[in-house]
Design a protein around this nucleic acid. Sequence first.
DNA 1: GTTATGCATCC
DNA 2: CCTCCTTGCATAAC
Length: 366
Amino acid sequence: MPRVVGHLDLDYFYAQVEEVEDPSLKGRPVIVCVFSGRTEDSGVVSTANYRARELGVHSGMPIVLAKKKLEGKEAAVIRMDHRKYEEVSARIMEDLEGRVDVLEPTGIDEAFFDLTASTRGDYSAATKTAESIKEAIFNAEHLTCSVGMGRSKVVAKLGSDMAKPGGLKVVPADATASFLEPIPVEKLYGVGPKTSSTLLEMGISTAGQLAAADPSDLEKRFGKKFGGFLLLASTGDDSSPVTADLEPTQFSRIVTLKRDTSDPQEAFAQLAEGVEYVHRKLTTAGKSFRTLTAIGIYSDLSTKTKSRTFETPMDDLGTIRETSAALFEELGRSAEKPLRRAGVRVSSLSNKEGQTSLSEFLHPVK
DNA sequence: GTTATGCATCC
DNA sequence: CCTCCTTGCATAAC
């Protein structure tokens, strides 16, 4: 029986949530932005609706540049409200859990799902389920989404990309090979600019060519693990399962400083709220950490990190404060360039004494 | 085997 | 002109 794997992606999520909340935005270019606070308009576009995209604006673009492109176009420039999008996302994910066999959220606006068991590998039954899911989200939240389905995660993700915006792309298991053959390698999940340029050097530009490549050549260039993955992905045979209740493995926060500085204490002071945020996330999740990392991003945007691992799990704000302050001191001393951004991360997480894992909490053993 | 650090991906 | 977050992996050093 072939697996039935789906990928659901909420369309231009942040901007669409804003459109739903304020219908007067419909039909106008809308951009949701992260303002860094450094100057009036410093920061980047997080999400642009399709009207804004038509005018050449896309995510990652500096706000100043986006505003120029949108001048005189009745555009709405909105400050990102992460809390709001998280609430909408949580409602949708909760509803989805009841409609699929397994749900694996992979971000605030997307999730993989599995329908193998309930459809017994029947792709027409799965198509009906996907359609009802799209309908349910639209009825409940007035949001559109794009869905892809196929026999693996790579195929499902490719499908949802192709279906954007608002569509459904189903690739039945036996149509996988012909579907993948002409796909450019850079479209494959897990293949970014670095990997695709290396592949191009090897004369490989499509999934079909990748599938026909010499496995040992791929291993030499990418290592055994990633080389093997590429080969499987090229034929839609990547086997990674859809997994529910994945526990977080780290929490981090990075902020942009008001001005570049070589003074570690000044940088650390501006990170104070970020430190509290990380501690709050840790507490909410009921976790302790063993490793704490200070992250420095310098004026030339290069990155340097310093970390410390404790022998026993820690969870208090004081420890995070003191340790990150000390690590920043080291970061400042070892660098010749001033800092532009500063961050803190906790990892090597474990559940606190007496706390059940999130998964046990959600689905207790009877 | 564990730790520190950086790289690549994706959002 | 340049935000923020997460995950996994490679590699070197201990």
